[in-house]
Amino acid sequence: MFHLIRNSELEVTLDVSGVDDRLPSVAFNVGITWKMPFQKASIEILECWFECSAIDAFHSDLKSLVSLNSGAATLSDLSNNPVFIFTKSENEVIAQIFAQDTAEMGQISLKVKGYSNELSEIAEKLGAFEKWW
């Protein structure tokens, strides 16, 4: 397990829960905790599957976004549903996290403001993740 985001307000962990070599892909259990001044919300997304190439492209997009004034980086699951979107505008970063039931019974989204210097930390943590592909 590793922390993709870890600050005083938002914590996002990724824990490998499956691997498929036929379509090089990996599943993560995604843990999300958002701490607000007087409340706390937690979400757990189980077995969220991503193509390995999508993770590599997302990492590359994050590294590029660090040096840009504005833009976005998106990581989508195998069904092409966005799970993580980081949008940068000057010094502000918006992290959006989405979860959708595969039976299409419901969906949830979380949108949290952050700072542009966090993007390099996120890209670094994703780059340090031990990849086997």
Rank of each mutant, 00 (worst) to 15 (best):
A95H: 10
P37Y: 02
V93P: 08
E121Y: 02
N81F: 06
A95W: 03
L119E: 10
T102P: 14
W34R: 09
I45L: 15
W34H: 15
L65K: 00
N117H: 09
K88L: 07
K111P: 03
T74Q: 07
L68D: 13
W49N: 04
A95I: 13
S17F: 05
K63V: 12
M105E: 14
F28I: 05
E121G: 06
A103I: 05
V66E: 14
L119I: 14
V66F: 03
F28W: 05
V12I: 14
I43C: 12
A27M: 06
G106W: 01
S8Y: 04
V83Q: 00
Q39N: 15
S53M: 09
K35P: 01
T74G: 04
K113A: 14
S79C: 09
D61A: 14
G71E: 08
H59M: 08
S79N: 12
G114L: 12
L78V: 14
K40T: 15
E90C: 03
S120D: 13
M36D: 14
H3V: 02
K111V: 11
A95R: 07
V66Q: 11
I55Q: 07
R6K: 12
P37Q: 07
A41L: 15
E11I: 08
R6A: 07
W34C: 14
S42Y: 04
S53P: 00
D56Q: 12
A72I: 01
C48L: 08
F98G: 00
N7S: 01
L62C: 06
V112F: 05
S120K: 14
P24Q: 10
E47K: 12
N7H: 01
S60Q: 11
W34G: 02
L75I: 06
Y115H: 11
E104R: 14
T87C: 04
A57M: 04
S64T: 14
A27K: 03
L10W: 06
Q107L: 12
V12A: 01
L14H: 02
K111Q: 12
N81M: 08
L10S: 08
E118M: 11
D21G: 03
S89H: 11
N117F: 11
S76L: 01
V12M: 02
C52D: 12
I55A: 13
S70N: 15
N7K: 00
L119D: 10
V26G: 00
E121R: 11
G106K: 12
T74S: 08
S17M: 09
